[in-house]
């Protein structure tokens, strides 16, 4: 089911091949610009708030992974749902014999944003090679944290989708979400206490970026993994409930 959905949306997006290549090139340039500040910081300092250059690069790589996932999978679907609701075509989606949440979350893919993935792998690989090898538990914990964090971010975007049932103009919410997650590019220890909590629990980018990096550099603890899992499950459950509520209150444009 998921495979079929992914194939269809990939086919739609691949119709514009030259766009795909063009977006790849622009994506590479954008990534280069993202790394710029890192180079500047570590030209002046060995460590910042206890993070070395490679460790901070690892956080940046994890952020690129997240932003490519958000850009490829979550953001286009938010736009699609808003469009569905405005035109009343959401009824057609709801009539399909599959879970509507699944259909809505995977109806569109923006493959050009997947171009960030090789950059993320390259940066992350370089960073890990510069650091002492992580312990197996650290690796397992980091993988769990990344997956939980991605689940949490998905939950957050689904919540944003749900608000579009009540307010028509949520397009702008997208920009707010994206700019709020920008802060996750940097290790959370740079920020003051309350902002750190916000970036772990409310806009859970920190779960995808900082927590796994902590685990991989051997500063992790089982509490971090537990936090990650709790935040991930929490967002999934809450967004599922919100989706149900939103659907229940949906009065289609045609009725």
């Amino acid at each position: 089911m998921v495979g079929a959905l992914a194939r269809v949306s990939l086919l739609i997006a691949m119709q514009y091949r030259s766009d795909f290549v063009f977006n790849g090139l622009t994506g590479l340039l954008r990534t280069a610009a993202l790394v710029g500040p890192l180079l500047l910081v570590f030209q002046h300092r060995e460590t910042v708030s206890g993070w070395t250059g490679p460790e901070a690069t690892l956080v940046m790589a994890l952020f690129l992974l997240l932003s490519s996932m958000t850009g490829a999978l979550m953001e286009p679907n938010l736009g699609a749902v808003v469009e569905h609701i405005r035109r009343g075509t959401l009824d057609l989606v709801l009539l399909k014999p599959a879970d509507a949440q699944l259909l809505v979350s995977l109806s569109r893919v923006e493959p050009s944003r997947l171009w960030d993935l090789p950059a993320a792998l390259l940066l992350g690989g370089w960073a890990l090679a510069q650091m002492p090898a992580p312990s197996p538990w650290g690796v397992i914990g980091a993988i769990i944290a990344v997956l939980s964090g991605l689940a949490a971010m998905y939950g957050l975007w689904l919540l944003a989708i749900c608000t579009s049932f009540y307010f028509v103009q949520v397009d702008n919410l997208r920009f707010l979400l994206m700019s709020a997650s920008e802060a996750g590019r940097w290790p959370l220890s740079l920020f003051s206490g309350w902002l750190r909590v916000v970036l772990l629990v409310a806009v859970p980018v920190g779960v995808v970026t900082t927590l796994p990096a902590e685990l991989l550099r051997g500063r992790g603890s089982w509490e971090m993994v537990a936090t990650a899992v709790a935040v991930g499950t929490g967002f999934l459950v809450v967004s599922r409930l919100a989706w149900r509520r939103a659907l229940a209150s949906y009065t289609s444009a045609s009725s």
């Binding site: 910081v41 702008n172 994206m178 700019s179 709020a180 802060a183 740079l190 920020f191």
Partner: peptide
């Protein structure tokens, strides 16, 4: 409010 990046960079 979306243009809050200078605040993030200030923290850094």
């Amino acid at each position: 409010l979306s243009a809050s990046l200078p605040l993030v960079m200030l923290a850094l």
